[in-house]
Amino acid sequence: MGAVVLKNIEKLYSDTIACTDINLSINEGEFFTFLGPSGCGKTTILRLIAGFVQPSKGTIHLGNRDITNLEAEKRQVGMVFQNYALFPFMTVAENIAYGLKIQKKSKQERAERVEKYTEMVGLSGFEHRNISELSGGEQQRVALARSLAIEPKVLLLDEPLSNLDARLRDRMRSEIKSLQKKLGITTIFVTHDQTEALTMSDRVAIFEKGRCIQIGPPEEIYAYPANSFVARFVGDTNLFAADIRNGKASLSDNVTINLETPAAGRFVSIRPQDIVFSTAEDNRKNVFPARVESIQFDGISVEYSVKVDDMSFRLVILNTSTFCHEITVGADVHIAIPGKSLKILEN
């Protein structure tokens, strides 16, 4: 039995479905991510677990306990809000001690825990600051410490990084992850950012239109997307409708790719880094003449958009020290698409 188990959860707002048919089992100590575009129902599910909304159908278990009808204040889950929701008229220490006061912890224990958790989030010495004196990143840390201080059974993070600038976001990403590892706390993380999901999670659940489409470790989801939505949403891809028969995938009249292993489906997904430049002399299969349409350089890699007849492909080449930049816009080139790089998708 998992640490958090959702069975047949459905939530309706008057007539619109916020989420439906949700079955999840999150393991003890796992870093579990809900990933999806905005409006896909992921935050609703988090709020269902926190107890701020009641499911229309289904049950929620925390450990062995059915908490479906338990009030939010009795659930012992710690939530970090997107806007942090700190209490603006309290100091850092008072914010962190708020939940402990409610738990009727002694003054000494409160002081110890405040010290422990401010140190843990790297805010030692900030105890007596006012919230308005903190930067966004520091507020984020207070919110995290406040939730951790009550030593909850589950930590819920609602897009906690979305209000931070890019550099800070990268740093907080690894800090949160290592904190979670250290504490071994079961964590549910909601995000619409695939990088966050892929880098931080033990497992990811992908949501679309209120439904959970795929659950699995990041590598598995990236390598074997369940459908074209997942392929596009997690990582970059070249996605085409294709006619697939006899071990061949026809993307157009002139582009037919020989598959490594026969499969059935209606869509083809090819990751940009799987396609490589080639030459006319290349006598391998699946080599096509193409013209370079645009080039984007981002330091680590170079992204090319090329056209084979009317079909656009994107290629990503790692910018290693041996890489030469001789391909220019408008150049006639050849690209090779390895048959094993094709993921055949049903829908």
Binding site: A72, A85, F87, Y98, R146
Partner: peptide, 9 residues
Amino acid sequence: EASRDLGGK
């Protein structure tokens, strides 16, 4: 909600 989440009735 944060208050309730921290156990505040």
